[in-house]
């Protein structure tokens, strides 16, 4: 898989965002300074602890997920769509790279951007509150999977979009609402009605935020609300990671299929 061609495309994709930190890394850093300052310090000081954590610490995992997956999605969708718009994606399409190599290179580079942004947000959070990592390996695995998943969605978005407004719509009106209702700023355990929890569990973001929160803070709402029956309750984070991994594989397979049939790419 790691052919010279694959590495060349991966390198090109990474260089594209690395060389433009003002456009790619500065915005999430500044935005999250504002989040932590307003939600964490100003409002958080008036909110009781959630699940045993200060509010500012509780929201760190959610903000990391929000930044990481948004950037993974944006990077992949922009890269594909901009390449289509200016037709330079033809440089890739007319090459001997396999469709799987093309997709994995785009996804991997976008996931890298998501991971870097995730780390930046965690570092920003660390400036406001001490953070220790409870389950490092699990955290890394989850971050890799969810950034790859959203990079995979980004590929689809980039292929489906007909203009730049479509990309904005996807990010602002689909992705962000799902993330904000994905228990970034609250715990599922704050819900008093079981139907509220059941509705929340339909939102895939809940599993991503919860998994990262488990990796970072060691707390999982999914264990608390008991999505798995006893005696498997404690395996809820692993279960969530398994489902997310399966979803990622499925989305990447769809990406490869779309490349193969030339959806949005060929006449």
């Amino acid at each position: 898989m790691l052919s010279v061609g694959f590495r060349a495309l991966f390198r090109r994709e990474v260089l594209r965002f690395v060389r433009r930190p003002k456009n790619t890394f500065m915005p999430p850093a500044i935005t999250n300074v504002l989040y932590f300052a307003v939600f964490g310090l100003i409002l958080g000081g008036r909110i009781d602890q959630i699940a045993g954590f200060d509010y500012i610490l509780f929201i760190v995992p959610g903000l990391v997920v929000l930044g990481a997956i948004s950037n993974a999605f944006e990077n992949a969708s922009f890269s594909i769509f901009h390449g289509r718009w200016n037709e330079y994606i033809h440089e890739t399409l007319t090459s001997p790279l396999s469709y799987a190599e093309m997709v994995v290179a785009y996804v991997a580079a976008s996931a890298v951007r998501g991971l870097i942004v995730g780390v930046i947000i965690a570092v920003v959070g660390r400036l406001f509150v001490p953070i220790s990592i409870e389950h490092g390996l699990f955290l890394v695995a989850t971050m890799v999977v969810i950034t790859a998943l959203f990079a995979g969605f980004g590929i689809i978005g980039g292929l489906v979009a007909r203009d730049f407004d479509d990309l904005t719509v996807m990010n602002q009106f689909i992705l962000r609402p799902l993330v904000f209702f994905g228990a970034v700023f609250y715990s599922l355990e704050t819900f008093e009605q079981s139907w509220q929890i059941q509705i929340s569990l339909v939102n895939p973001m809940v599993y991503m935020v919860d998994s990262v929160r488990y990796g970072l803070l060691g707390h999982s709402d999914l264990i608390g609300v008991g999505i798995l029956p006893t005696p498997y309750t404690e395996f809820a984070p692993l279960f969530a990671l398994g489902v997310l991994t399966a979803a990622t594989v499925l989305v990447l397979a769809i990406d490869v299929y779309l490349f193969k049939i030339g959806y949005g790419l060929t006449d």
Binding site: S3, V4, G5, R7, A8, L9, R11, R12, E91, T92, S95, P96, L97
Partner: peptide, 9 residues
């Protein structure tokens, strides 16, 4: 260089 790279150079 990128184009050559895609072709395995």
């Amino acid at each position: 260089m990128h184009k050559a790279g895609y072709h395995g150079v």
